[in-house]
Amino acid sequence: MIDLLELKKIGVRFGDKQVLKDISIKFQPGEIIGLVAPNGTGKSTLMNVIMNYLPPNQGQVILNHELQYSSKANEVKIHQDVSMMPDQSDLYNHVSGKNHLKIYQEMWNSDPKLIDETIVKLGMESYVKKKTGTYSLGMRQRLCFAMQIVSNTQVMLMDEVMNGLDPTHVELISQILLQKKAEGKTIIIASHLLENLEQYADRIFFMKNGELNLVDDVSPGFSDNKVTTVRVSNFSQELLIVFKKQFPELAVQILPNGKTLIDVKEQDTITLGAITQYLIAQRLNDFSFGKLTLNDLYSLEYQQS
């Protein structure tokens, strides 16, 4: 498999604070990567390093096995293939949305047909000819996304792409992301909107202490489609003690958000049935079987104090 973009031992330090620690990772074409972390853990820093807006203290960014940010000319070449989604507050208020798209199409010299296609796909026809000064937050956000889609670069970096969007548009954008993935693009998404990320991301990383941790490593079997966990709400302390006595072989975890997780990996159907009976008997009706959600993992990773 060819890898398109490679980060090699990237390290960034702000004063004493090590924001990125020896990050080495490879990204393949046709892959959507999710970067999940709370604010201030280095998601944006990593993206800025990939764009060379922030030269790292150590390490290299390598595109197509050869290109590095070693000269200004190379920077231009890399930017031809790697783009980052613009900030919605940076739009030109006196310029129309369509002209914004035209600018990005011109700058990256992509197919002009993309402009109209993207407008239709994102349902922007009604307002795209108006000046962006009149747009709402969601409209601006969609425009920024559309701009990057129009630039049509090999690697696309998106920071908080779903911000301020309603569920319908989240769905629309997800569809476009999947289509771009099918076209062989590498898309890196930083987000703290967790739910929809699992739907389309091939690999999801947590960032902690300046390191990237693949979710599957944090919780083995996360990506498998098997029942691994029982999630119970309002599990009181006393009942939990009783439960633990009854099923001493099960690992139980209480999340900071109040949910209780019972690890049922490698358990047979009989045990699962017994658990169900026990929970119903204790009138704990709000429980579900399934796999660990990203939300649970997130809570485990970052909210444990």
Partner: peptide, 8 residues
């Protein structure tokens, strides 16, 4: 953020 990434 619009300008910075221009491939120029």
């Amino acid at each position: 953020s619009i300008i910075k990434g221009y491939p120029i």
